[in-house]
């Protein structure tokens, strides 16, 4: 991995995107078991219908996990100081998920050179997560 340099980044720079072609029921079953988020709203169609949904919905944290994966594809995990995820819409079965991010600020704090990355996850119809990461670079 070639680690980006603080000096070489500028506001507006985009980081490499991550695209998931399609969210399947299998993906949600795996994430249910792996994450321990056993809320049946994500894996049990009968339950989802009983609470007024047409189908199961994806875990928000699945897409947050993809945003984290986009970041660790770009920089070593040890550079990540924080990630904030705000869930803004539901992700449905069959949706593609596109993760994007761009540099919005460069600043220094406590002797560290930091970049703020504004990130988003979106499906074809909605923006599903608004996120922000702070990364420390040399």
């Amino acid at each position: 991995m070639k680690i980006p340099k603080f000096e070489s980044l500028k506001e507006g720079d985009e980081i490499p995107t991550l695209k998931i072609q399609s969210v399947s029921r299998h993906t949600l079953a795996l994430y249910c078991g792996a994450s321990g988020d056993h809320n049946p709203i994500h894996v049990d169609l009968d339950y989802a219908k009983s609470v007024g949904l047409e189908d199961v919905i994806a875990h928000g944290m699945l897409s947050a996990g993809y945003l984290g994966r986009m970041l660790t594809n770009w920089v070593p995990q040890s550079t990540i100081r924080s990630i904030k995820n705000r869930f803004t819409a539901m992700t449905h079965i069959g949706d593609s998920i596109t993760c994007t991010g761009k540099v919005t600020e460069k600043f220094e704090k406590e002797n560290e050179k930091l970049v703020r990355i504004e990130m988003q996850a979106h499906t074809p119809n909605s923006q599903t997560i608004i996120a922000e990461a702070v990364i420390a670079l040399e």
Partner: peptide, 17 residues
């Protein structure tokens, strides 16, 4: 009950691996 629950935010701050 679980059926009323939605995840609004999950914010992480890291101090070590």
């Amino acid at each position: 009950t679980l059926g009323k629950l939605l995840h609004g935010e999950e914010n992480f701050t890291y101090f070590g691996p």
